[in-house]
Computed example of a mutant assay.
Amino acid sequence: MATKIDARPLLVLCAVSLAGCINFSPLDDLDATTPPADPFQAALYKNYSFLAKSFGQVGQAQYGSFDQDSSIPLTETQGTVADLANTYADKAMRLTRDEVVDPEPSRDIKTHDQRDRLVRALSTAKDVYPRDAARAQADWDCWRLNLRVASQVPSAEKCRQSFEITLARLETEAAAVAAEKAKEDEAKKKAAAEQGQKTAPGEITENP
């Protein structure tokens, strides 16, 4: 006679096991993370987190994120808002792991120069003006990424308009930083030259 087995405990065990194996999306992980310590990365994390959460409840992402290995064609607007939200969340999460998050690539010749200008300004000014630098990068990414979701094309245009303002501000700040550095370098050269003039050939000015 066959033995009848009560399957209910097995079902409970299975449910518990599955619950422990769920792969949460980057958007799910945002609230349990600590922002980076670096001022620029912390400001960038704040911007990306805001963008990720700005869509509200977005449901399950179809593709996960718009990375370079994405299944979404880069020239078409086939993504979902959930994909977009998780892309911003993924950028924020990468910053918490001390990863470098570069501005989104430009996908056409027209915007290539604008991205180059952003990268140059970031390299010069992000340590001195971290909040403004982070906002400019976030505006750029918002413009380029939102274009990939049909319903977010109008918001992409707003991000483009904001980017033009924040990029111009960052470039002004970068020019000021570069000018100050050039001034400091010139002062160092002048001081070194004056010190050299005071020291005659073969003269020892300090105790060995």
Rank of each mutant, 00 (worst) to 15 (best):
D113E: 05
N23R: 14
D31K: 13
K110D: 12
S70K: 08
M1P: 15
Q161P: 06
A52H: 05
G20N: 06
E184Y: 00
D139Y: 02
N207W: 03
V12R: 15
Q62K: 14
V101P: 00
A92E: 08
T124A: 13
V153Q: 08
K126W: 03
A42Y: 05
F163H: 14
C142G: 10
V12W: 08
L170A: 09
K181W: 01
F163Y: 15
K91R: 15
V177S: 05
A121W: 03
L84Y: 07
M93V: 11
G56F: 04
A191G: 06
Q197K: 15
Y88V: 01
F163T: 08
E164V: 04
L30V: 07
A15M: 13
P9I: 06
Q161L: 07
E76C: 00
Q57Y: 06
C21N: 14
D67P: 00
A82P: 03
D98H: 10
A61W: 02
E206R: 10
R144V: 15
L74F: 12
F24L: 15
D102C: 00
S54M: 03
L13P: 00
F24R: 13
D28V: 06
P103L: 02
D90N: 10
H112A: 15
Q41C: 09
E164L: 05
E173Q: 15
T96L: 03
P105W: 01
S17E: 13
R94A: 13
D29M: 09
L95E: 08
Q41P: 00
G202L: 11
V119Y: 08
E194L: 13
L118K: 03
P201C: 00
A19C: 14
V12M: 12
T124Q: 13
A89L: 01
M1R: 14
K183H: 04
K46Y: 01
N23W: 10
P130S: 07
I165Q: 09
A7I: 14
A182R: 06
Q60A: 14
S106F: 07
E164N: 06
A134L: 08
D6C: 11
R148I: 04
S49A: 07
F163N: 10
L44I: 05
G56T: 02
G64M: 01
Q161K: 02
K181G: 01
Q41F: 05
V101S: 01
A192R: 11
P154Q: 10
S151A: 15
D67W: 09
S71I: 04
S106V: 00
L95G: 09
T199G: 00
I204F: 04
E99D: 11
Y129K: 06
P105S: 04
R131I: 10
K110R: 12
L167S: 04
D29E: 09
L30P: 05
A125R: 02
E184D: 11
R160W: 13
Y129I: 02
C159I: 03
R120L: 11
A200V: 06
V119F: 04
A7P: 15
E173I: 03
R8C: 02
G56H: 07
I22H: 14
L10H: 14
R144T: 15
L30H: 09
P208R: 14
L145H: 02
A82R: 05
A187S: 05
A133M: 06
P26M: 01
Y45D: 12
R144Y: 08
P130L: 10
Y88R: 05
D83A: 09
Q114P: 00
R94T: 00
V177Q: 02
A174M: 01
I22K: 12
Q41T: 09
N47F: 02
L95W: 03
N146M: 15
L74W: 12
R131W: 00
V101M: 02
Q68L: 11
V153G: 01
